[in-house]
């Protein structure tokens, strides 16, 4: 009986009066800078979440002075044990967390105070971990909706997406919800690409797909990166992710534990021992 009384539905789940699912669960963070903004911005990386500290709402801090950065043309991967705050770090970069100190920079601009929608407008593409497609819309409509903020002709972008994900072209008239798990993820990534983002954020793109599909998805992600879009990605499957990563961040309890190129981290004895399983 605490919190917002307007959100108290008394556990009612009567489908004849309210529609289950699809409601907004997103809580845009408000940047409440209490500790003063530490500007450690070095200006070299394309997207930087700079010494971010914060948590959800009024809750405790989950991130502690965490820094994540992606350079142009690179794939950066956030890995770490369960509950390390990997997804939280990405959400902080995307503006869905109360960042209490620290800042986020995109292409030399401070975007710390922008809402997630505005960040999309500035060129961030975000693929959530779950519910990342419009299941009742066709594949093509999903892509069209991805390009909603564009007022120019986006047919060439769509052609590029179809080129990257040929299977989507075959299924473009099919409802996205009818596709397999791997295909859905391709739709999700394709949708995010439709804005021609300057940087792409992927939250566990391989969650819940089979190993074979996972390999294929990683291949696709590398191809996307080759088109020149920097990618920041959170991954459960640390080993494979680090293999394709230009840069890796190992988070432990919301703080940077190890940072380096993917190869360095894979070779690092500490990292191997602590969570790659030897």
């Amino acid at each position: 009986m605490s919190g917002n009384p307007y959100q108290d539905d008394r556990g009612n789940n009567d489908a004849s009066i309210t529609k289950p699912g699809g409601q907004s669960r997103m809580t845009p963070g408000t940047s409440t800078q209490t500790g003063g903004r530490k500007e450690q911005h070095t200006g070299d990386a394309f997207l930087i979440g700079d010494s971010m500290t914060g948590g959800y709402g009024k809750g405790p801090d989950i991130l502690h002075d965490c820094t994540i950065a992606v350079n142009k043309g690179e794939i950066a991967v956030i890995v770490g044990p369960n509950g390390a705050g990997k997804s939280t770090a990405m959400k902080a970069v995307f503006g869905m967390l109360d960042v209490r100190s620290g800042s986020v920079w995109l292409d030399g601009e401070d975007i710390t105070d922008l809402s997630p929608q505005d960040r999309v407008g500035r060129g961030m593409g975000f693929v959530p971990q779950t519910q990342n497609i419009f299941t009742s819309l066709t594949v093509e409509e999903n892509l069209e909706m991805g390009a909603f903020i564009r007022r120019d002709d986006f047919s060439d972008t769509m052609a590029q997406v179809y080129e990257l994900f040929p299977i989507l072209k075959d299924k473009r008239k099919q409802a996205a919800g009818e596709l397999s798990g791997g295909q859905r993820q391709q739709v999700a990534v394709g949708r995010a690409l439709m804005t021609k983002p300057k940087v792409l954020l992927l939250d566990e793109p391989t969650a819940g797909v089979s190993p074979i599909v996972m390999d294929e998805l990683f291949d696709r992600i590398i191809e996307v990166a080759r088109t020149g879009i920097p990618i920041l990605m959170v991954e459960q499957n640390a080993r494979q992710a680090l293999e394709i990563a230009d840069k890796g961040y190992v988070l432990v309890q919301g703080a940077n534990a190890h940072t380096g190129t993917g190869k360095e981290l894979l070779a690092d004895a500490d990292v191997r021992k602590s969570f790659l399983g030897g």
């Binding site: 669960r25 959530p128 497609i133 419009f134 909706m145 991805g146 949708r191």
Partner: peptide
């Protein structure tokens, strides 16, 4: 279909 994703799509 999906409010959050619609928001993210602008």
């Amino acid at each position: 279909d999906n409010e959050d994703l619609a928001l993210l799509s602008g």
